Amino acid sequence: MELTKKFYAVLLFMPQLILSLFLLLGVMIGIVQSFGYIPSLNLNEFSLVYYQDLLSNKQFSQSVFFSLKIALYSAFISTIIGLAWAYFWLIQEKLSRWQRMMVKIPIIVPHLVVALFILQLFGRTGIFARILFAVGFKNAQNWFDSLVFQPNGWGIIFSFMWKEIPFVLFYCYPIISSINRKLGEAAQTLGANRMQSFIKIVLPLSKSTILAAFFIIFMYTFGSYELPALLGPTLPKGLPVAAYQAYIHPDLSQRPLAMAYNGILLLVSLLAAAIIYLMAFYSQLKNYYPLKKR
Rank of each mutant, 00 (worst) to 15 (best):
S34H: 04
L11P: 03
N193A: 00
Y282D: 15
S34E: 08
S178T: 07
L3C: 08
P228H: 03
V64D: 06
V109K: 00
R130V: 12
N142D: 15
I275F: 07
A272I: 13
G263V: 03
S208G: 09
I175E: 15
P236L: 04
A272H: 04
I29D: 09
A273Q: 12
F222C: 03
H111V: 12
Q52Y: 14
P290S: 05
S178F: 03
L41Y: 07
S159L: 00
A280G: 06
I127K: 07
A71Q: 08
G238D: 01
S96L: 03
Q245M: 11
Y171N: 02
G153S: 09
S20H: 06
V202W: 02
L227A: 03
P166C: 04
S67E: 04
Q120F: 14
L95K: 00
L267G: 02
F215D: 14
S159A: 03
L11A: 11
S177N: 15
S40H: 10
L285S: 10
Q245L: 09
P110N: 09
V103C: 12
A115Q: 02
Q196W: 11
L205N: 02
P39Q: 05
K5T: 07
L205P: 00
R194E: 00
L95A: 02
M28D: 09
S159W: 04
I248E: 11
I179D: 00
E45M: 13
L24I: 05
F160R: 04
Q59F: 08
A129S: 12
V135Y: 03
M259S: 14
Y244F: 13
V64I: 09
L25A: 11
V49Q: 13
Q196G: 07
C172H: 02
G36D: 08
I29E: 04
S224T: 15
I175G: 09
M219G: 07
L265A: 06
L205S: 01
H111P: 13
S197P: 05
S146I: 09
G238N: 04
Y288H: 15
F22S: 13
K207R: 14
K104F: 03
Y288G: 13
K237R: 09
F149M: 11
Y37G: 01
S146F: 11
S34I: 06
A75E: 00
